[in-house]
């Protein structure tokens, strides 16, 4: 099914509780009573159409409204991506780290060194993810905004032209993979190879969090790769053409 603006926000969560994290990213708190998506969005200053496209594309993988999403301003998309980055680095990753630490503290068996090894693995993963996100926040997204501004103003100067020639948004598409492999391994090590742990509840919590994080990251990359990249790519092409015809 597809969510539309007149559906009650409470029903959205009943239908798919995974969308709770998306609400958080848009800074929409719970307690919406019987208000519709549109009403809730408006009262929190959120662009309803953009919100709908995001929740629909998370809810149903086969629904990918590239054309619609591409209609939104890049500023809106960039802001959303930044919020998502913060959600990973400031909330989700430290939370999972805390669980792993708790697992180590509670362990009195000889599994303890194994858990320390797992912790080191996760710390390395965090480091890689952090570098990847930092690069996006500090280089890619500012570049995107620069392109957006030039496109809106219909002007392009030589420095920007050179920049496009040196680094195109398409280069960035290839950089997603490695980080995902580590998360995949971590899950399998816990499921298949780590000797059984005393604290099974905590262990399950960690696994579930890893599954959720993986899914969230995949959806996140999908938005970057299928919305942001093609949109910027198109702008790059038009700007380059404009510059070259001005020069010629």
């Amino acid at each position: 099914m597809q969510f539309t603006r007149d559906i009650k926000m409470a029903d959205v969560i009943h239908i798919n509780y995974m969308l709770l994290t998306i609400l958080k990213r848009f800074n929409i708190p719970l307690g919406f009573g019987d208000k519709t998506i549109e009403k809730v969005c408006r009262s929190h200053d959120v662009n309803t159409d953009f919100f709908l496209e995001i929740i629909n594309s998370f809810h149903d993988k086969s629904y990918f409204p590239e054309q619609n999403l591409k209609a939104f301003s890049l500023e809106l998309i960039v802001k959303y991506l930044r919020n998502t980055h913060d959600y990973y680095m400031l909330e989700k990753i430290p939370e999972i780290e805390g669980y792993i630490e708790e697992l180590i503290q509670n362990c009195v068996t000889e599994n303890k060194p194994n858990l320390s090894m797992l912790k080191k693995f996760f710390t390395d993963y965090k480091q890689e993810l952090n570098e990847h996100i930092k690069k996006e926040d500090e280089m890619v997204l500012p570049y995107v905004l620069e392109i957006d501004k030039a496109y809106k103003n219909n002007t392009i100067d030589k420095p920007l032209y050179d920049k496009i020639k040196n680094y195109s948004i398409n280069d960035y598409e290839d950089e997603h993979e490695n980080v995902e492999d580590k998360l995949f391994d971590l899950k399998n090590i816990i499921i298949k190879y780590l000797p059984p742990l005393q604290n099974k509840n905590l262990c399950n919590t960690i696994l579930i969090e890893l599954f959720l994080l993986e899914r969230d990251l995949n959806d996140h990359s999908r938005i970057e790769d299928t919305v942001l990249v093609p949109k910027v790519d198109q702008m790059e092409q038009e700007l380059t053409k404009m510059y070259e015809s001005d020069q010629g």
């Binding site: 060194p113 194994n114 090894m117 797992l118 693995f121 390395d124 490695n178 492999d181 580590k182 995949f184 391994d185 971590l186 399998n188 090590i189 298949k192 190879y193 780590l194 000797p195």
Partner: peptide, 22 residues
């Protein structure tokens, strides 16, 4: 066979199974 892709992951597997020493 193992479902592990990265070198760091394979290393943990090897330690857990006494294929190498920590």
């Amino acid at each position: 066979k193992l479902g592990i892709k990265t070198i760091a992951g394979l290393t943990i597997y090897a330690v857990l199974n006494n294929i190498i020493n920590p």
